[in-house]
């Protein structure tokens, strides 16, 4: 019974609402909209984001970093090293440079700190990109 009523109503109201038709925006709506989009487009092209370090460069940096890290962790690495002896320069006559000795703990801490710093920079950049994006 109610189904029939619904059908009756549907037929009746379909006709009624079509009689009312659609609403129309102002006549120059499309023109105004396109003008606004073009302004936004100009702004966009003025401020195109270009990274200082390209993806390719980041790849090389990451590869070098991983090789060095791999060498430190698994390779034949001396924690007590004398930087200046590597140059084979006889400077002892003129100035006295301190011998630098770096412990493994210090190196691990430094690497950890660097990784987290890099991560933080990335996250902050993402946060600001989202905040100022047009979409």
């Amino acid at each position: 019974m109610e189904k029939n009523k619904e059908k009756e109503f549907d037929v009746f109201f379909s006709k009624a609402i079509k009689e009312v038709g659609m609403e129309s925006p102002s006549l120059d709506f499309t023109k105004k909209l396109l003008a606004k989009i073009e302004v936004k487009q100009v702004k966009k092209t003025h401020f195109v984001y270009k990274p200082i370090i390209t993806k390719y460069a980041w790849g090389i940096i990451a590869a070098v970093f991983l090789v060095v890290l791999g060498y430190i962790v698994t390779g034949d690495y001396q924690s007590n090293m004398s930087w200046w002896s590597a140059f084979n320069l006889d400077l002892k006559w003129h100035i006295k440079l301190p011998e630098i000795s770096i412990s493994k703990t210090y190196i691990y801490c430094f690497i950890g700190f660097t990784v987290f710093l890099g991560l933080q920079v990335y996250l902050i950049k993402q946060h600001h990109s989202k905040q100022f994006s047009l979409r």
């Binding site: 609403e23 925006p25 709506f29 499309t30 396109l34």
Partner: peptide
Amino acid sequence: GDTHTLALLVEKYKHMVFTLAFR
């Protein structure tokens, strides 16, 4: 990036979208 085609699309749908928004 063709804004002329965007104008055609706007013309085609603006009345219906405006009707929905207005209602």
